[in-house]
Simulated scan of single mutants.
Amino acid sequence: MKIVVSGGGTGGHIYPALALIREIKKENKEASFLYIGTEKGLESKLVPMGNIPFQSIHITGFKRKLSIENFKTIMRFFKGVQKSKKVLKEYKPDVVIGTGGYVCGPVVYAAAKLGIPTIIHEQNSVPGLTNKFLSRYVDRVAICFEEAKQYFPAEKVVLTGNPRASEVLGQDGVSGRNSVGLNQNLPAVLIFGGSRGARPINDAVLNSLALLSGKPYQVLYVTGDVHYEKVKKEAEMIGNPENVIIKPFVHNMPEVLAGIDLAVSRAGATSLAELTSLGVPSILIPSPYVTNNHQEKNARALSDHGAAELLLESDLSSEKLIEKIDEILLKPQKLAKMKTEAKKLGIPDAANRLSKVMKEITK
């Protein structure tokens, strides 16, 4: 089977695509892939690193305000459609899958117009403009949250979950703890704000260090590369507690996630897929700076079911953060209940579900 995958802009669109490719390759070694992205996007670096053939088209997103750039974007869209059609005719894929981002627009639209079976994958509880547009033309719309169903044609929607969820299962939590220096005998909370970190979370944690030093649990704090040096210096000035480990980045995050008891994080779709697949309770601090405030809606999809505690950035303080951590980690019954509820929301076989949808529409 020949498969074209397109997704770009942010890791939230790219990582699920790469996870799906890896899982399909495990199942079907004869499957071949072509990834279509943008030459300046993160995908142009990540995809070739995975030894996946890559081609690029030029496309940009719409500005929120009326702008001449929006007219240029429309022209780029149609040029992108023409180039995509040429690439697709040469490659002759059996199916085209779009995982989000502006680049999916011309690629998936071109495939639909050529009569090639198409799927879009929506990771968030509130879809972006591109997937809303494409839902009119594709054969199936794969979603990760039930809350997203209302935005798409009901007859096309199938709940598959996020392929990244499949990759975190079977990870060795003991090795994960050892790799970052966590004690095997103490409860552990992981605090992270995404690959680049998040300043409000950094500030709250720094102001919490003195209080954290006396707690009967340990903290792994991932600052993001951008903030690491500043955070490390401030932590040293305060007196870095022995039970707090500070790292700029964790390269084996799935393995580390498998070994923790509680996560404090933003509410990106990929992170939530991993946490629910493993049944890890969380305190979610959604970024208020994302399109359609989708992270808060993602977070509420967990907190409304008791799988997470929602802490808005506007309410975030060191006192509030520690209070939330204590309320969960120091109360075994609540921690166990949240684990159960998180696990209920997880879709660990997401890659297989999406693969089945792909096979159904290519029969």
Rank of each mutant, 00 (worst) to 15 (best):
G7D: 02
I14G: 03
A19V: 09
A31R: 04
L34Y: 04
E39K: 14
E43P: 05
L46V: 01
I52M: 12
Q55H: 06
Q55P: 07
H58D: 11
R64Q: 15
K65P: 09
I68H: 01
M75C: 10
K79V: 02
V81N: 02
K85A: 05
K86P: 06
V95P: 02
Q123L: 03
L129C: 07
R140F: 00
R140A: 03
A148I: 01
Q150E: 11
P153A: 12
V157Q: 02
V158Y: 00
V158W: 02
G161K: 11
S166Q: 02
S179R: 00
R196M: 15
G197V: 14
P200N: 12
I201P: 14
N202L: 15
N207M: 14
S208E: 02
S213I: 00
G214N: 10
Y221D: 06
H227G: 13
E229G: 01
K233R: 14
I238W: 10
I246D: 04
D261W: 08
A263D: 07
V264L: 05
R266V: 05
S271P: 10
S282A: 15
I283C: 05
I285S: 14
T291Y: 14
H294A: 10
A299G: 10
R300D: 01
R300I: 14
A301E: 13
A308I: 10
E309C: 12
L310N: 08
I325C: 13
L330M: 06
L335V: 11
A336K: 15
K343S: 15
I347Y: 07
D349M: 12
L354W: 04
E360N: 06
